[in-house]
């Protein structure tokens, strides 16, 4: 079920169509329901009546195959990173990563932990960082609106960057994942 070939480089489509598509993509962000740290507890109020993310077209999808956004919600252990890489690579293009909390930015309160990585964008292309420890749902909605703006302007191209610089990311990932047993290409 894995590909043996490196992924093809994405090409640009016609402009007007691309604009309409970008609008559609921005207004229909589906989030993989996968929580990595304490931040995922802040995603629950987002779905319920107080903050209601469905009014922006944001919905939770239970499978990475159907999702667009992967939320790294808080501290990321090296063991979890392995799973996150697999989830991220199973999401179909275009895909976006939103990172919550100071842990993903510089390690936060786990900066000296033996098992928590400090700089997330060395391993995965992050489109939006939301600061805070933990960010409140309002801050996450703010992050989503920033992501929507980036998508509408066509600037959320982390997934293209990941494909083009796959070797760089793989090298960094293999540096901290000691028993690397993932296939080299798994999307």
């Amino acid at each position: 079920m894995y590909c043996n070939q490196p992924p093809k480089k994405p090409g640009d489509k016609k402009e007007v169509l691309q604009k309409i598509t970008n609008m559609a993509r921005a207004n229909s962000l589906w989030v993989t329901a996968y929580g990595t740290g304490c931040g995922s507890i802040e995603l629950r109020p987002l779905g319920t009546s107080r903050f209601d993310m469905e009014r922006f077209g944001i919905a939770m999808r239970p499978t990475p195959r159907q999702a667009d956004v992967l939320i790294i919600s808080g501290y990321l252990a090296t063991k979890t990173l392995k799973r996150v890489i697999r989830v991220y690579e199973q999401i179909q293009d275009p895909k976006y990563i939103m990172a919550l909390g100071s842990c993903t930015i510089n390690g936060g309160m786990y900066f000296d932990s033996y098992n928590t990585l400090n700089v997330l964008d060395k391993y995965l292309p992050v489109d939006v960082y939301v600061m805070g420890c933990m960010p409140r749902p309002e801050a996450i909605i703010d992050g989503f609106s920033l992501l929507m703006k980036k998508i509408k302007e066509g600037r959320a191209v982390g997934w293209k960057h990941y494909r083009e610089n796959l070797d760089y990311y793989r090298e960094n990932q293999k540096q901290i994942i000691k028993n690397w047993d993932l296939p080299d290409y798994n999307w």
Partner: peptide
Amino acid sequence: TAKIHGRVGPRVTQNFIDLWKLFRKTSSI
């Protein structure tokens, strides 16, 4: 459903947007 939950709910045209977005996503499965 959203009103019954006490939420605002999505746009009425949300399904068209979802459909177009899905149609334009790439697939390698």
